[in-house]
């Protein structure tokens, strides 16, 4: 086979894959602008005949989707902020600070990674109930606050900080907290950016735990609200597509703007891990 033909076949395959990857989302956006009933025709329409914003108006008007979007934003931002603080401290300490029991504790954490999260959910719900955290943002955020893989990522990255740098600061009389604040944090900033995007997307997209812990409609996040809407409005295809756009567009935008950090983070983690 000639080089030109090979290259042609390769690019045909690449483009075909890209089309398959994008069709569902493309159709979602297109159908969200269709008139009611227009998406349920045969043969299927690809583009709306007369684009309309009526479904978005319904969603943000009568169905109050803005409130759920705000809930999602609060849970995602607060969850991410607390996760960054907790994992940066722990990941740095596991990598660089010498304290008794360090390596054993870390191995124990790694071992816990094979336990499916659902195993903890039933007792966790009962615990949240006892603590009065059911139907609170804090209750929804808590499981995201100390992800073990996040500690692992920070530890991998912090391992490259030269010990001499830390020891020199100690000789100068800097406290351990001061060293963390002014030396460690700037150095590990790149991995924290990656981790921030990871956590932001994961908490925004999370479904099962918010579904369990947020039974009060006023506290629902977007995925929980969308799942409920899709039961009630199963026939309103175009409305549901608009709801799906509102739910997934923010994370898509974050990803497209910051994808460099995200993709590098996954690839770096997988090679070292």
């Amino acid at each position: 086979m000639s080089r030109g033909l090979k290259s042609l076949l390769l690019h045909v395959a690449l483009v075909a894959g890209a089309v398959l990857a994008l069709i569902p989302m493309g159709w979602m956006v297109s159908a969200s602008f269709m008139a009611p009933g227009e998406a349920n025709t045969f043969p299927p329409r690809i583009l709306p005949a007369h684009p309309t914003l009526v479904h978005y108006q319904t969603l943000f008007g009568r169905l109050d989707l803005g409130r759920y979007a705000l809930n999602s934003l609060i849970v995602a931002v607060a969850g991410t902020a607390s996760c960054l603080l907790v994992t940066s401290l722990a990941g740095y300490a596991f990598a660089k600070l010498r304290f008794p029991g360090r390596d054993g504790t870390f191995r124990l954490l790694l071992g816990a990674l094979v336990i499916p999260a659902q195993v903890s959910m039933l007792p966790l719900f009962l615990l949240m109930r006892e603590l009065g955290l059911v139907n609170t943002y804090l209750g929804a955020i808590i499981p995201a606050m100390a992800p073990i893989f996040g500690i692992f990522m920070v530890r991998q990255f912090a391992g490259s900080i030269p010990d001499d740098l830390l020891d020199a600061a100690r000789l100068d009389g800097a406290s351990e907290w001061r060293i963390y604040r002014s030396i460690v944090l700037p150095v590990i900033a790149p991995v924290l950016v990656t981790l921030a995007i990871f956590t932001l997307l994961a908490t925004w997209n999370d479904f099962m735990w918010p579904l369990i812990v947020l039974s009060d409609e006023a506290k629902w996040t977007l995925p929980v609200a969308l799942a409920s809407l899709s039961g009630e409005h199963a026939q309103d295809t175009e409305l549901m597509m608009a709801g799906s756009v509102v739910t997934t567009l923010p994370v898509l935008a974050v990803f497209l703007v910051l994808q460099r950090f995200y993709i590098q983070g996954i690839m770096a983690g997988s090679v070292k891990g």
């Binding site: 690449l14 894959g17 890209a18 990857a21 994008l22 569902p24 989302m25 159709w27 979602m28 159908a31 998406a39 349920n40 025709t41 045969f42 299927p44 997307l201 925004w204 997209n205 479904f207 977007l222 995925p223 929980v224 969308l226 799942a227 899709s230 295809t237 549901m240 597509m241 709801g243 799906s244 756009v245 739910t247 997934t248 994370v251 898509l252 990803f255 497209l256 994808q259 995200y262 993709i263």
Partner: peptide, 29 residues
């Protein structure tokens, strides 16, 4: 291409499950 192929990963699972329910519609999907 890498970014395009990766895009479905970051979408919200519940939202795309709703979308696929309509893509799978027996008559209009």
């Amino acid at each position: 291409f890498r970014t395009i192929y990766f895009t479905p990963v970051v979408t919200t699972l519940v939202a795309v499950a709703v979308v696929w329910r309509y893509l799978y519609h027996p008559s209009y999907g």
